[in-house]
Design a protein around this nucleic acid. Structure first.
Lengths: 220, 220
DNA sequence: CAATAAGTGGAGGGAAACCCTTCGGTTGCT
DNA sequence: AGCAACCGAAGGGTTTCCCTCCACTTATTG
């Protein structure tokens, strides 16, 4: 990803990727304060390796966020390429994001991270906003097709995906798989507009990116 | 609730309730392995009080589950009393459950608990199943009214409520409130059947109570 | 309003989880 | 083959958590 990465030895790069994958899952399940040793274990890697590559928790979170953004972007491109219609693309995108657990939790919810990443010029925020714009185009298009319900915005979808992806604790992985799959279909069903849209307007206003950022800043 | 409870001194009973309320929230947020001291703190109670009332974590979880079942039952009665139509009752019920964070996570997902509660004769399971029956009647009725989408069952709703209620980590309580409220409306919108039901059938089969229990037994 | 039994909070010792570094051995690269 | 990069595991120091003990407070009852 960065130039540093290419200079890594092959096995080191492999390990680095495994760590990020594991971290994505663990962060999703347990939050960003999850034990790093759990991540290392799941990545099939010693704890020292993790620390060598990511000196502290903060940079690990940051890298995971960056990685997530990239992957979501790729999935978005892939989805639009595969479907001429916006709704089809959107549905595939959502399914993929949930399937890959590509929760965008970090980039969406932790803009705190970028504030101090000023040295790198706020890449995170820029890319997040770019992605948001893309998604906004997609949702608008799907609404003009008359297939996506009115009044829904990208934030609704992002947060929906996050809530869906987040596994329930205690119960096993397989059951979580079943539950998430089923709830995903319900979610998609809810987004879908019916031929004659007789549904009542939604009771609440959708959130905006600014809402998110503002509240997060207050929170800390 | 039990005869033991009535024999408690007034302040003790108050404290006991506060503990259960706090435990419900904390378990929901952090899972059943959350630190007990956090629960005591939130209940405004010393740690010793918690231990005196609930000798170990297991019985606390059990009591919270039992309490949840009771409260859900009450909300269900209240909802049906307030609305002549089944859909109206169902919608109010769901909103209330989310609002009160009355996640039914314990009774639904931890039948393990009752297995060893055999001394008390599996009250937990019986009551859970009873509640399930009531909800099934309600959903069927709502479907016959043509207002609840076909192919949806109580489990879908329970699990939906659980996922909705579960707050996202790190971000503050207020933001979570906003997010949950909004996603709740989307969820309800998804459950709602439109006048001409042109929606495609859902891709996945709904889960049944047996599915849940079977998987949970496998998990441990 | 006192006597008493029930209830309470917080300190603290022991155990467990977690963080992070150091180091002897391994492995990709040229 | 040889070197530099990389690795895993052990372990010391710190924090978190569990759970009990005990001196103090408060509801209840006559």
């Amino acid at each position: 990803m960065t130039e540093n990465t290419t200079r890594l030895r092959a096995d080191a790069r492999r390990n680095r990727e495994q760590i990020i994958i594991a971290a994505r899952e663990v962060f999703l399940e347990q939050g960003v304060h999850a034990p790093l040793e759990e991540i290392a274990r799941r990545a099939g890697v010693g704890i020292a390796t993790l620390y060598r590559r990511f000196p502290d928790r903060h940079t690990l979170v940051q890298q995971v966020a960056l990685d997530n953004l990239t992957l979501v972007g790729e999935e978005l491109d892939r989805a639009t390429a595969a479907h001429p219609d916006a709704w089809g693309a959107l549905a595939q995108l959502i399914r993929r994001l949930v399937e890959l657990r590509l929760s965008v939790i970090m980039p969406v919810l932790l803009p705190i991270l970028e504030e101090d990443a000023r040295g790198e010029g706020g890449t995170l925020k820029t890319r997040r906003n770019h992605l948001f714009d893309q998604m906004e185009q997609l949702t608008r298009a799907a609404q003009q097709e008359g297939r996506l319900r009115q009044g829904i915005n990208p934030i609704d979808i992002w947060l929906g995906v996050i809530k869906l992806s987040r596994p329930l604790p205690v119960i096993g992985a397989e059951l979580n798989e079943l539950i998430t799959g089923r709830q995903l279909e319900l979610f998609l069903g809810g987004l879908h507009a019916t031929a004659l849209d007789t549904s009542e307007p939604l009771r609440r206003q959708p959130l905006t990116l600014d809402d998110l950022d503002r509240h997060l800043k207050m929170a800390e």
